[in-house]
Amino acid sequence: MMAGPLDELLATFYRGFSGEVDLLDTVLTPDWEDIPLAPGQAPGRDGIKPLIAAFTQAFAEVKVVIHAIVDGRDDNGDGLVGVRGEICGTHRGEWFGVPGSGREIRIPIHEFHEIAAGRLGRTWHLEDWFGWFQQVGAWPTEKERKKRRS
């Protein structure tokens, strides 16, 4: 069970990524840095909102589950926080050129957030997109790759 200001900050951030984009205005600085930016993504917290809208169109019932938090902040509450989590949902529409599969997906994520004055100012993130391609049947299996080579 999550409790406390850090947990609430992160839970609100991930609810924003699950489609409640207006929540991002409450937890991100206006000049928040998303590292790396997605192709075509504008910088700042307003730059992520169109990407989230497209993502929630392609994936239904999106939610981010936090599995672990590593708190590296100082006594003032500023500093780096690491998160290990998962994006969960159902692949309903086209994403990365892959048509909706109807499959439930779980995408592991690893992120570092820089916190200052109670807000996120910078986020470094890594998602397991190769694993997602496998989950939706868009990545060839070893058997299929061997067949192509023969």
Rank of each mutant, 00 (worst) to 15 (best):
G89Q: 00
T90H: 11
T90E: 15
H91A: 07
H91W: 09
H91I: 05
R92W: 03
R92V: 02
G93W: 02
G93L: 03
G93K: 02
G93M: 00
E94T: 13
W95F: 15
F96V: 10
F96A: 14
F96N: 12
V98H: 03
V98Q: 03
P99Q: 02
P99H: 01
G100K: 04
G100R: 02
G100S: 07
G100V: 05
G100N: 06
S101R: 04
S101Q: 05
S101F: 02
S101A: 06
G102I: 03
G102D: 04
G102C: 04
R103C: 08
R103K: 13
R103P: 07
R103H: 11
E104Q: 08
E104F: 07
E104T: 06
I105G: 00
I105F: 00
I105P: 01
I105A: 00
R106N: 07
R106F: 06
R106E: 05
P108T: 09
P108I: 13
P108G: 14
I109R: 02
I109S: 06
H110N: 12
H110E: 08
H110C: 15
H110L: 10
H110Y: 13
E111C: 12
H113D: 05
H113R: 06
E114P: 11
I115D: 07
I115V: 15
I115W: 10
A116Q: 11
G118C: 03
G118L: 03
L120P: 09
L120C: 10
G121P: 10
G121A: 13
G121W: 07
G121K: 12
R122G: 04
R122T: 04
W124Y: 03
W124E: 04
W124A: 00
W124D: 02
W124N: 01
H125E: 07
L126T: 12
E127A: 09
E127L: 15
E127H: 14
D128S: 03
D128N: 07
D128A: 05
W129P: 00
W129R: 01
F130R: 13
F130L: 13
G131D: 04
G131E: 05
G131C: 05
W132L: 04
W132I: 00
F133T: 03
F133S: 05
F133M: 06
F133C: 05
Q134F: 07
Q134V: 09
Q134H: 10
V136C: 09
V136H: 08
V136S: 07
G137S: 09
A138V: 00
A138N: 01
W139M: 01
W139A: 02
P140L: 04
P140Q: 03
P140K: 05
P140N: 04
P140I: 03
P140A: 06
T141C: 05
T141S: 10
T141A: 05
E142I: 10
E142T: 11
K143D: 15
E144C: 08
E144A: 09
E144G: 07
R145T: 10
R145Q: 13
R145M: 12
R145S: 14
K146F: 14
K146E: 15
K146T: 13
K146Y: 13
K147C: 12
K147Y: 09
K147V: 14
R148C: 14
R148H: 12
R148V: 12
R149G: 12
